[in-house]
Design a protein around this nucleic acid. Structure first.
Lengths: 357, 357
DNA sequence: AAATCAAGCCAAAGCGCTTTGAAACTGACT
DNA sequence: AGTCAGTTTCAAAGCGCTTTGGCTTGATTT
């Protein structure tokens, strides 16, 4: 059933049907009701491709999905997607994923833009040598970034969390607890979020008057394996005198591995080692669920997804005109894995045990 | 730049340009080269909506994305998607995700079908009371199921793994090791995969001549929390005489929690408890990475994604005509978490230790 | 009673592509 | 020279929708 057939059936013009269905005022309430009813009854839905062609609007937002043997679509993405989807629903937009290997990414964006298959795109996993902002802008494709680029640092719309502030606060807490030898098991430093976080940690150290050497920094993809491996390097393969007394971790997945290493080495949290992790809020992996509840910096990546969908639609429809950079504050939630530095432990044992309980 | 402009530029008809670009034989190699070159140079890409309208093909496969406060898009999905994307790329198709809350799912499929926005859909997370097969078939929408329904059991195309066989084999192994009191921490029993797996476990017990009571079965969403909770019920809240000596687990996430519970209770694998887990092969969470490497049944959900994309495209293009049910065998990989039943442990200690090393 | 106006409807012109059916041009064969 | 098959090109008709501009009507104003 298409528009023409329906119009013949109702003995009305296609124009009227179209207007009735799309809520234009030029049609009487009476006919509208009749039309809507008939459409429902005969299961008429406008052909989406015809409509897209006629209006020039695609009704969907796009994302170039990195694929390839070495690219793991990680759980962060799906959680983000989940939020996006939740909001997409209420705005009646679809998500269109265009798979592309990393090296052909540019081509993919170009094709998306010239073929008008989506109304706008969101960019995520911003890298240090970010090229996409200039690219999609040049292509005239509306966009919204999840995260920020190093350069240009402004002039484009984005939603990001205050990574630097979060890790500044986390580091500060550890320093206040007396820790002086820290380690940071960071994510891949090619991504800007990792740079921002590292900046936060370093700034906190500096403000506290500690030398850069007080921090051991390791960067690797955020997963269990790397967490384990790096923790082993820190605590098994390092001289006792140089071992950190506290570890910052960029993700719950890394922390899974760190905790395994500590267990294996017989080190206890927080008595021997304090840990602070960034928590993106995964419903299937909660900081409260660890053997010792994790102290975390927390920001829901799912909420970011929802917000990004909302704003991207606003940008596409012209509601939002100026490129605003929206930076979300991050909570620091103290649970059981942070305690005083070991040297001070004895005179505070009562308190520590209680906190770790 | 659109087709008309390009045709004027080259002083050729739109027909010829279109044919040249789409590789039809009616155009001389010479003109084709000229056209392709010009298109590249001027950055011409056919408007995808116009093309879709004209051909009636959408060039994308669809998925109705369940959203809602209580629906967590889980890591299984993203890994699956990753495989799908990998293959989609080579076939030049996009993925179109239509978010829909569970209760309005039917409506979403209906809209997808009548609006012709995708060429076909895949269905996943098959439920016991599966309605979607009849629905999409009735709508004339080509489809491919990931997993099988209970009814109808055949007559539709699907890709599934041999869940029953996998858990039969896993159970058999445990029985051969002397275990007689088993527990199965299953996924949500509303899904058919969970039913099939339970059938496998029960059949193995029966074939071995054990009564149904030898199995304690628990069903819940597969996550860390539930794994922990259910393991606690089994090992802390149950009389010692009734405690299982071996646990089957439906997912690595549940097992994460089970292991945490066992650690907390001071129970060791495999000396006190044997564990077999189903592993969907997540790059970020590997069975080898557990404190004791996990014995698993293994089948890559990512590979399933790639295969499903491949076959769905074949179904859409008419290459595949008969609905075939493709069932993949599942490997059983013995690592460190399976050993003889505790009672027999003493006289076999040497071997167990070795296996668990 | 004529003039004005809004409400409700319509015919037709796009949107940018693919595809049909026909035309024009080649050379080769009678 | 005339015919024919094969090649290369084209004009025009869709695909199913939205939207412009205009046409009727009946009611309201002058």
């Amino acid at each position: 059933m298409n528009l023409k057939q329906l119009s013949q059936l109702l003995e009305l013009s296609q124009t009227t049907i179209s207007r009735a269905l799309n809520g234009y005022p030029e049609v009487s309430e009476q006919t509208r009701l009749k039309v809507v009813e008939a459409a429902r009854k005969h299961g008429y839905n406008p052909n989406s491709n015809a409509r897209k062609l006629a209006t020039g609007r695609a009704g969907s937002i796009g994302y170039v999905l990195p694929v390839g043997k070495n690219v793991d679509l990680d759980p962060h993405f799906v959680e983000f997607l989940s939020g996006l989807g939740e909001h997409a629903l209420s705005r009646e937009v679809d998500l269109s994923l265009t798979p592309a290997p990393f090296e052909r990414e540019t081509e993919a964006y170009r094709r998306i833009a010239t073929s008008r298959s989506v109304d706008g795109v969101y960019l995520s996993s911003m890298r240090n040598d970010e090229q996409r902002i200039a690219l999609v802008r040049g292509l005239g494709l509306p966009f919204l970034a999840h995260g920020r680029a190093l350069a240009p640092s402004e002039g484009y719309a984005c939603v990001d969390i205050d990574n630097e502030g979060a890790f500044y606060a986390a580091t500060q807490l550890l320093l206040q607890l007396g820790h002086r030898r820290l380690a940071y098991i960071n994510g891949d430093i090619d991504f800007t979020f990792a740079v921002h976080r590292l900046n936060g940690v370093r700034r906190a150290l500096k403000d506290f008057g500690l030398p850069p050497e007080s921090l051991q920094h390791h960067s690797a993809a955020m997963n269990e394996d790397n967490g384990y491996r790096l923790a082993m390097t820190l605590f098994r393969d390092t001289d006792a005198s140089e071992r950190p007394t506290a570890v910052l971790s960029a993700s719950m997945f890394s922390t899974l591995g760190i905790v395994r290493a500590l267990n294996q080495l017989g080190l206890r949290m927080p008595d021997d080692v304090s840990i602070i992790t960034h928590d993106d809020v995964f419903p299937f992996l909660k900081p409260e669920s660890f053997s010792v509840p994790l102290t975390t910096t927390r920001s829901s990546i799912r909420a970011a997804g929802a917000r990004i969908c909302e704003r991207l639609v606003d940008i596409i429809t012209g509601v939002e005109t100026e490129p605003v950079q929206e930076i979300w504050p991050v909570e620091l939630i103290v649970r059981g894995t942070t305690g005083p530095v070991p040297a001070e432990r004895k005179r505070m044992r009562g308190r520590t045990t209680e906190a770790a309980e």
